[in-house]
């Protein structure tokens, strides 16, 4: 029996996302770029504030080893998730908004709440491929024109929020061995990347299902391991997010 082949096939569950982010990392490795699209000037509100549910964060921090393998770091990742939640709460508060957490317990594959998350994954991929990426769709006229549809009502009912925010981040750091390879590479005139940060955030209107705001962040530097650095990253990622009221 094998404990590797299935790992391989199971890993391919998310391989497309990884592939895509790698593509971006490769293409935009040089420098930092943040690009956003917003369909709204302000968040809708009834009593001056807006409720935003933060969907389960898809975050992974890794060490980039000398050989170029990324090795996920559980402790860093757990810390990063806490830092991002705290920083997002502060950023939302600055925009007269409250952060709610999503409770994912006990859902099955067919449930609308799970399917909405899967659909958002596909829509996020589509926006990165067809809007930011090279394969433009002529019918879209460079507009962000995607929705999760009417079934979003299930998420509104489940959370009581006005908006849902999805955050995805992959971050890698050079190990000591990697730094050595980098130095050698510099001497030999070969570019060896020290680590990259790729992330995006997307805001969905829970009344219409529409993606109303989207931002992506690609950087050759940046850090999520410490609170201070994570604050900076989250501030950059959410910089253009509108305020309520």
């Amino acid at each position: 029996m094998d404990h590797t082949t299935t790992m391989r096939s199971a890993r391919s569950f998310r391989s497309i996302t990884k592939l895509l982010l790698t593509a971006f990392a490769v293409i935009y490795l040089s420098g930092c770029a943040a690009t956003h699209v917003s369909k709204i000037d302000q968040l809708s509100t009834i009593d001056g504030s807006s409720e935003i549910v933060l969907m389960p964060l898809d975050v992974e921090l890794s060490i980039l080893t000398a050989a170029g393998l990324t090795e996920p770091q559980a402790e860093w990742t757990q810390n990063a998730v806490q830092h991002i939640k705290t920083a997002a709460r502060e950023e939302f508060a600055r925009r007269n908004s409250n952060l709610l957490l999503f409770d994912a317990g006990g859902l099955n594959a067919e449930s609308t709440l799970v399917q909405l998350q899967k659909l958002h994954e596909a829509v996020g991929y589509t926006i990165r491929l067809h809007h930011y990426g090279p394969l433009k769709l002529p019918t879209k006229n460079n507009q962000i024109d995607w929705t999760l549809g009417d079934d979003i009502a299930a998420l509104k009912e489940h959370t009581g929020a006005d908006y849902a925010m999805f955050v995805f981040v992959r971050d890698s750091y050079a190990s000591a061995g990697r730094v050595a390879v980098q130095l050698l590479g510099a001497v030999a005139g070969v570019g060896v990347a020290g680590g990259t940060q790729y992330g995006f955030a997307s805001l969905v209107d829970l009344n219409s299902g529409e993606i109303v705001w989207f931002n992506q962040l690609i950087s050759g530097s940046g850090d999520l391991r410490t609170k201070k650095a994570a604050d900076k990253t989250v501030t950059a990622l959410l910089k253009t997010l509108p305020s309520a009221g």
Partner: peptide, 21 residues
Amino acid sequence: IKRLFILGLLSSLAGCVQYSL
């Protein structure tokens, strides 16, 4: 995946393969 990716990368760099209306 690799084949698709390389194909996509090359074609996007060459700017020749596009969706058409």
